[in-house]
Design a protein around this nucleic acid. Structure first.
Lengths: 110, 110
DNA sequence: CTCAAATAGATCTATAAAATTCTATTTTAG
DNA sequence: CTAAAATAGAATTTTATAGATCTATTTGAG
């Protein structure tokens, strides 16, 4: 499946369906899942239709023993030795900016 | 990384960090990402600290060209021929319930 | 086939995220 | 080193989700 051809809304729904499939695989009702996660039945229903917070998703995945899926979800970035060399061992913490006026040290003097 | 040993909050933060890494890999500022997604700068900041909605995450992943990761996220459940046989070709759409009183056909009569 | 249970959907209230605007700190180009 | 830009964090208003309750529809165990 190519997610790039789908709208955000469609992707949300698709994820909801897959989470529902995980629940059914364990033969749990929405009610049981709600109780197990201390979330409301409504939250479970919303999640399975794609509308929810990350926190809700995480709690549900934990209960469904599917937390490990998160690993593939957003993988840790691995920096290759070559890249590291290129950066002279410096790991960037911010994106580079556009400097408008490279201010001179003493401009107020002219 | 074993997510099961981590608290929900910690997982949220970890995911936020990874999204930040994805952004830096493309050398984009939070501001640029906000503009590109038509989200607010604050939403980007919140996402990178782990607090956001699924919709926000999807929009950002699309912009960061990381939507394909979702494919592995929660794989579509593939039903094996054997499983299908066991279910007699029936695909379950609901979890099985607990029936309290297997109501007799004519109970009102005694 | 029946009907109890599961699920969908809709409406309120409460709570949290999105958006906007500030202040403060940190990184890094020059 | 310096200052401009990037980022963190906090307060406020708007908007969406969480939670609770109700109605309606659908599934599947018996």
């Amino acid at each position: 499946m190519d997610f790039y051809t789908l709208s955000d809304k469609t992707i949300e729904k698709e994820l909801g369906h897959r989470i529902k499939a995980l629940r059914l695989r364990k033969n749990m009702t929405q009610k049981q899942l709600a109780a197990a996660t201390t979330l409301s039945l409504n939250s479970i229903k919303s999640l399975e239709s794609g509308r929810s917070k990350l926190a809700t998703l995480i709690a549900v995945l934990r209960e469904l023993e599917a937390l490990d899926h998160l690993e593939n979800f957003i993988p840790e970035i691995s920096i290759s030795p070559m890249q590291l060399a290129k950066m002279q061992g410096h790991v960037r913490k911010r994106a580079s900016g556009e400097r408008l006026r490279p201010q001179a040290k003493d401009e107020s003097e002219w």
